[in-house]
Structures are given as structure tokens and as C-alpha cells.
Computed example of a mutant assay.
Amino acid sequence: MDLTPYVDNLRQELAVAANAGGDEARALAERLTAPLESAARLTLLNALSAAMGEVTRELAPGSVDVRLRGLDPEFVVTQPSVPEPFQEARAPLAGPAAPVPSPPPADADDGAMARINFRLPAHLKSRAESAATAEGLSVNAWLVRAVSLALDGKERPGPSARGTDSGGRGFTGWVR
């Protein structure tokens, strides 16, 4: 979503208001428009983030996240997973049963993501945040790795290429 038209509209409204105050007010408004642009963008991002929080509450278990790409926000909609329809088990009529495919290995990354709400005591949260920061990870990435280690007894492969810029640095977190 391009915020530039909204910021430009705010700049024009400030100029119109300044015209009513005379030459000094007009000169002051011209000097203030450049520094106010970043504040206006941040305020718009805060409003969008709050709006998407309300939308997410209505869509639960689906969600809408606001991600910042350069100067412009991007909306990411996560649909709730659709449960498979119930099928009654039937006895085979004759012959051997078809082989049941084995589940994928636990360390396979098929790209599918699931969202959970996780509550933990404040003292554990602060310790997890400290550990994640010390390793240069987001809390989410650190928790995914910790769960993987606990379940598999080994570390998952390194970070995926998703969410990185051309310099190879990853971007994670929430925008408010």
C-alpha cells in the first residue's frame, strides 16, 4: 500500500491552513512539511496496525499482519486452516489394504505455518527474549528452534531465504 498520496494530501491541507495565517505561517508550514512526513507515515502505520488488529480479532483463527517493505506497508492475510471433512471408516470389501503413506519426517520444512497462542510466565518470557537477542534471532525463531530441539534432539537447518533483503539480513517482528 502506497502511503505517499495520503502524506501528500496532509501536506496540501497544511499549506491551505497556513495560507490563512499569512506569509510567516506559510513559510513555517513549508519548513515543517519535510520533518512531519516521517511522523505522518508512522502515525498512518500505527493506525493501520491497530485496524488490522481489530480485523484479526474478528477473523480468528485467521489473521491479517502489517509488514513494512521499504516505506510502504504490506498486508499479509493468513486464512484459518480448513479441517478435512469427516469420512467414516469402511471395512475393505476384499483384497489387501492399500499402503498408508508414512508421515513426512519431523525436520522436513514444507513451508506450511501454523499459528498458536502461547502463554508463559513473565520471567520466562524475559529470559526467552534475552536468549533470542543474544543469538540474533526473533523470539519466534528462537522458540521454533527450541521446540524443534526439544522434540527432535537436534537443531533445525539454518534460516530460510524468506524475509531477507539483498544483504542477507532477516527482518522479523511486529509493526505497531
Rank of each mutant, 00 (worst) to 15 (best):
N19G: 15
A20I: 05
G22C: 02
D23H: 08
A25Y: 08
A25H: 00
A27L: 13
E30G: 02
E30P: 05
R31L: 00
L32R: 00
L32K: 03
T33P: 03
T33Y: 04
T33L: 03
P35A: 07
L36I: 11
E37T: 04
T43L: 14
T43N: 13
L44A: 04
L44V: 09
L44K: 07
L44G: 07
L45G: 03
N46M: 08
A47P: 07
M52K: 10
E54M: 13
E54T: 05
V55S: 05
T56S: 15
R57M: 07
E58C: 08
L59M: 15
A60M: 01
A60T: 05
S63L: 11
S63E: 15
V64T: 08
V64E: 00
V64H: 01
D65M: 05
R69S: 07
D72W: 11
T78I: 07
T78P: 01
P80V: 10
P80R: 13
P83Q: 02
P85Q: 09
Q87S: 15
E88K: 03
E88M: 06
R90A: 06
A91H: 01
G95Q: 01
P96M: 09
A97V: 14
A97E: 00
S102F: 11
S102R: 08
P103W: 10
D109V: 13
D110T: 12
A112Q: 14
A112H: 11
M113C: 09
M113H: 05
A114D: 11
A114T: 15
R115A: 02
I116L: 09
N117G: 12
N117W: 00
L120Y: 01
L120G: 04
P121T: 03
A122L: 12
K125D: 12
A128F: 09
A132D: 05
A132P: 04
E135G: 02
G136C: 01
V139A: 13
V139K: 15
N140T: 12
N140L: 05
N140P: 09
W142I: 07
W142C: 09
V144F: 00
A146L: 09
S148P: 04
L149W: 10
